[in-house]
Amino acid sequence: MSVGQTIKHKTQEFKGRITERVGRTTRNKRLQREGRTDRVSGNLKQAASKVKHAFRR
Rank of each mutant, 00 (worst) to 15 (best):
A48R: 08
K45I: 07
K52V: 04
T26K: 04
T37Q: 11
V3H: 14
H53T: 09
L31H: 01
K8T: 10
Q12P: 04
E13H: 12
R24H: 14
R57G: 10
G23L: 13
G35S: 09
R33H: 08
V22Y: 10
G16M: 02
A48N: 03
Q12L: 12
V51A: 04
T6L: 09
T6P: 02
I7G: 01
E13Q: 14
K50Q: 12
R17G: 10
F55C: 05
V22T: 04
G35E: 06
L44K: 12
I7L: 09
Q12N: 06
R56E: 13
G42D: 05
G42L: 03
D38E: 15
V40Y: 02
L44S: 11
F14G: 09
G16P: 07
K10N: 08
I18R: 01
V22M: 02
R36K: 15
E20F: 05
R27Q: 04
K45T: 07
K29T: 10
R33S: 07
E20L: 12
F55K: 13
T25C: 04
L31N: 05
K45D: 15
T37S: 14
K45R: 15
V22W: 06
K10G: 03
V51H: 08
T26N: 03
H53Q: 07
I18D: 04
Q5C: 07
K15T: 07
R30A: 14
T6K: 06
R57V: 12
G35A: 13
A54M: 11
R27Y: 00
E20C: 14
R57F: 11
T26M: 08
R17H: 09
T37A: 15
I18K: 04
T6C: 02
N28W: 00
T19R: 08
A54W: 11
K29E: 13
G4T: 10
T26A: 05
G4L: 10
T11K: 07
T37V: 04
R21F: 15
Q5K: 10
R21Y: 13
G42I: 01
R17W: 02
K29G: 06
G16Q: 03
R36I: 09
G16D: 02
F14P: 00
S49P: 01
R33C: 05
K8H: 07
M1S: 14
V3Q: 14
A54H: 14
V3I: 15
R56C: 01
K45E: 14
R33Q: 12
T25P: 02
V40K: 14
E13C: 02
V40C: 02
H53R: 05
G42P: 10
L44V: 08
K8M: 07
R27N: 06
V3E: 15
K29V: 10
Q12V: 12
R27I: 00
S41E: 15
R33I: 10
E20D: 08
F55G: 03
S2C: 13
L31E: 06
M1K: 06
S41R: 12
R36D: 15
K15Y: 09
V3W: 14
K10D: 07
K29P: 12
D38V: 00
V51M: 12
G16I: 04
Q32W: 04
A47L: 05
K10A: 09
K29N: 06
N43W: 15
T26D: 05
R36C: 00
H53I: 01
R30V: 07
K45S: 15
E34K: 08
K10C: 07
I18C: 02
K45H: 08
R24V: 07
S2V: 09
